[in-house]
């Protein structure tokens, strides 16, 4: 902010042109110029997020199917969530996915970053191959997943057959479907955590590890006792970011299992989507969305406070 204040309209520093103009007119002109620059984007952003967010809250206090008249029901939609068994199942599935995905993606990102942080031949090729899946859309990843993990002719079962392991049902098995979705999410998103860790690794001065090595630490000790603690803020940041994206899982479920088999992969957002657009319970869906928002906020605040207290703060 200070930079902007310091640069206040340079026209003011040009007495010849402004001396005669009254101060109020000048202020009005500055306001007009300022809002002229920021108004279009501000209108789009607030109109498509703040405004609908408030609207969603109003909807969450109503019973409405989108056509008839909306009926005010107070907090009934919120209290209905308490006894909604399907929602509870969706919460469980989401928690399972988050518990699988977040630690795996943080560890994988760290591992890949350490491996890729070395100037050897072919490193550019390795890096490109590992990062490329980042451009794959949920739709593309969904099609690839159903093909690779097809129980009859999929590549994965074929590899298992060749090495003599039993065939699996994968996406058709309620116990395995979420694992498959986790694996393919990791494939598509490993690049993100890796790039973040890679950038952080390159910001750590080489002297730190060198000093540890001179003091007699081996490579492994130097990494865990010197490098890894330096990465703590990045780890906190990446873990929060991945948690928030994990509890919002929808796209890949839609493009692989559509919540099946036997609703085993129905996540909170998938449930919210089907409540809104299949069952047309717009009020209830909005209440679920607000519940999810509240949980996301609480997690973010809790982790931020915790990391502040333990002084690894990423924020």
């Amino acid at each position: 902010m200070s930079a902007a204040t310091a640069t206040a309209d340079p026209v003011e520093a040009h007495p010849g042109r402004t001396a005669r103009r009254p101060a109020r007119a000048r202020a009005r002109r500055a306001n007009l110029t300022g809002w002229g620059f920021v108004a279009p984007a501000t209108a789009v952003v607030l109109g498509l997020s703040a405004f609908p967010a408030v609207w969603a809250f109003i909807l969450s206090l109503q019973d409405w199917n989108g056509f008839g008249t909306a009926e005010p029901v107070g907090l009934e939609n919120y209290s209905a969530m308490v006894s909604d068994a399907e929602l509870h199942a969706a919460v469980t599935h989401t928690v399972v996915y988050t518990a699988l995905f977040v630690p795996a993606s943080v560890l994988l990102g760290l591992l890949l970053a350490v491996l890729l942080n070395r100037r050897i031949v072919l490193i550019g090729v390795y890096r490109t191959l590992i990062f490329l899946p980042f451009v794959a859309s949920a739709a593309a990843t969904g099609i690839l997943t159903t093909y690779l993990f097809n129980p009859q002719f999929g590549l994965v079962n074929n590899v298992l057959r060749v090495v003599g392991l039993p065939q699996q049902g994968w996406l058709e098995d309620p116990a395995q479907a979420m694992v498959v979705i986790t694996l393919m999410s990791l494939w598509g998103q490993a690049a993100f955590t890796t790039v973040i860790y890679l950038a952080a690794l390159q910001d750590i001065p080489a002297e730190l590890t060198e000093a540890a090595r001179i003091d007699g630490a081996n490579r492994w000790q130097a990494f865990w006792h010197v490098t890894f603690p330096q990465l703590a803020p990045v780890t906190v940041f990446v873990a929060i970011w991945q948690t928030i994206s994990a509890i919002q899982l929808f796209d890949l479920v839609y493009t692989t299992t559509r919540g099946g088999p036997l609703k085993a992969t129905e996540t909170i957002v998938y449930y919210l989507w089907s409540a809104a657009f299949k069952d047309l319970e717009l009020g209830y869906a909005s209440a679920v969305a607000y519940g999810l928002f509240a949980v996301t906020l609480l997690i973010t605040i809790a982790v931020t406070l915790y990391s502040r207290r333990t002084k690894v703060g990423a924020f």
Binding site: V45, L46, L48, S49, A50, F51, P52, A53, W55, A56, L59, I244, Q248, F250, V269, L272, W273, A276, L282, A285, S286, A289, Y290, L292, F293, T296, L297, T300
Partner: peptide, 13 residues
């Protein structure tokens, strides 16, 4: 608004 998740906006949008 960066904090507002997409799914909160689906229905009103």
């Amino acid at each position: 608004t960066i904090m507002i998740p997409t799914q909160l906006l689906m229905v009103p949008t």
